[in-house]
Design a protein around this nucleic acid. Structure first.
Length: 426
RNA sequence: GGAGAGAUGGCUGAGAGGCCGAAAGCGAUCGCCUGCUAAGCGAUUGUACGCCUGUCAAGGGUGUACCGCGGGUUCGAAUCCCGCUCUCUCCGCCA
């Protein structure tokens, strides 16, 4: 959510920035609502002031056994006025609120202009494409042949876009989760948290999923419980409505969670394999930062995510999302794209964003500087560190052998119970 | 799922229709005192939204709202009434 005062005073700037995102928003309606709200607020507040003053007089008159019936009936009318304006005001504020809640964040000045993913500048690449003396196969073929990924039974149990992991496949997924958590807690200084996997609507609104993107989410019928699409939601909302001390910042948290996404509107896209699932695992990095250091923190967070791929020895590139590709709440985002030789393509495996104060304002997450009485909004950041299912895909496709077996990367060996190669059973 | 108790500021805790944005204590900050520490003394100590003033800024003044949340009664609600949420205790069920 943008600051209403900022919006009021920077209409043209906001209009221009949103246009760069490819967004058309009727800011004239905002101006109208905002002015109407303030006008009515002044009116009702002065009536209240009046009523407060006179009510005290009435109290005094009554205490002195004097007649106050004239004042009482006059205040009765004033109260009716107040009630009527309040009604009006409530309506205006609701509309104003729902209006600002669907305005996306303003992109940071360093974000390149563009209309889609083809315009995302590549910031850096690491490693090289592995060479194969055979035609590398996609992970769904490898996984099925090895008996570690069972797409048919996943679909039987739950439906399309669900997968059953078996044996060494399940172990490999678990190994990746633990490897990532250990790296981020032991080496990068994050504190691990394990959160609820369902949250209420307030939390979903705090991080920006609601009200605009309800169709992307799974909701428990008849209850205010939503399945989290990422651990970003519960983790960022840990400090919802709180005021932190400056000395507590920056705060680094890491969480494993399953993620649930309806994937509405992506029918027919990535229908094979693990790339686009209704349920997948992810290790998420979340930071609460001072405003002045949040872009430094974004660079560090991105490198923390990249370190996972480096240690796994997987070639990747880092792109900076252009204005047209940027997510709703983000001011700046780096995507890590891992090389998948079986698909001859780079695929997003992590997304690292600085939300500046956009989420903090929605969720009411603030801090107080040492020696200051003023409270300020802090900045929130997060990034996948990494998407586990897609990392498993990258491992399978990059470490596949001519015979279809998978060599376990060095970094994962401590987590694989002595297995250093996954081969077809029997 | 059944029965009961509760929710007040950073914390503890008073408050029972007007004198309450809220006693008292603790904590914190600043100042005084002290050779140092402790003690003591004094002051300050919530948030949001308006308006006025000031401006490069910081600030100052003023009003309104907020005692879990939402409604109601009343000239006036932390206080009375209704609904909800959450917490705690006991019983049942349960990994």
């Amino acid at each position: 959510m943008l600051d209403i005062r900022f919006l009021r005073e920077n209409l043209d700037l906001v209009r221009k920035k949103l246009a760069e995102r490819g967004q058309q928003i009727d800011l004239d309606r905002f101006v109208q609502l905002d002015a109407g709200r303030r006008e009515r607020l002044q009116e009702v507040e002065s009536l209240r002031s009046d009523r407060n003053r006179v009510s005290k007089e009435i109290g005094k008159l009554k205490a002195g056994k004097q007649d106050a019936s004239g004042l009482i009936s006059r205040m009765g009318e004033v109260s009716d006025r107040i009630k009527a304006i309040d009604e009006d005001l409530k309506q205006i504020e609701a509309e104003l609120q729902s209006f600002v809640m669907i305005i996306p964040n303003v992109p940071h000045e360093s974000v390149a202009y563009g209309t889609g993913s083809e315009d995302n500048p590549v910031v850096r690449t690491w490693g090289e494409k592995p060479k194969f003396d055979f035609a590398p196969r996609p992970h769904w073929e490898l996984g099925e042949a090895l008996g570690i990924l069972d797409f048919a039974r996943g679909a039987k149990i739950a439906g399309a876009r669900f997968t059953l992991y078996c044996g060494a496949g399940a172990l490999l997924e678990r190994a990746l989760i633990n490897f990532m958590l250990d790296l981020h807690t032991s080496v990068h200084g994050y504190t691990e948290v394990l959160t609820p996997f369902m949250v209420n609507g307030t939390s979903m609104t705090g991080t920006g999923q609601l009200p605009k993107f309800a169709e992307d989410l799974f909701k428990i019928e008849g209850m205010d419980y939503w399945l989290i699409p990422t651990a970003e939601v519960p983790v960022t909302n840990i400090y919802q409505g709180e005021i932190l001390a400056e000395k507590d910042l920056p705060r680094y948290l890491v969480a494993y969670s399953p993620c649930f996404r309806a994937e509405a509107g992506s029918y027919g896209k990535d229908t094979r394999g693990l790339i686009r699932q209704h349920q997948f695992n992810k290790v998420e990095l979340v930071k609460f930062s001072l405003p002045e250091t949040s872009y430094e923190e974004l660079e560090k967070l991105t490198l923390n995510a990249e370190e996972v791929l480096k240690r796994l020895g997987i070639h990747y590139r880092t792109v900076s999302l252009c204005t047209g590709d940027l997510g709703f709440s983000s001011a700046k985002t780096y995507d890590l794209e891992a090389w998948l030789p079986g698909q001859d393509a780079y695929r997003e495996i992590s997304s690292c964003s600085n939300f500046e104060d956009f989420q903090a304002r929605r969720a009411g997450i603030r801090f107080r500087r040492e020696g200051s009485s003023k409270v300020e909004l802090l900045h929130t950041l997060n990034g996948s560190g990494l998407a586990v299912g897609r990392t498993l895909v990258a491992v399978l496709e990059n470490y596949q052998q001519r015979d279809g077996s998978i060599v376990i990367p060095e970094a994962l060996k401590p987590y694989m119970k002595g297995i250093d190669r996954i081969s077809a059973a029997g």
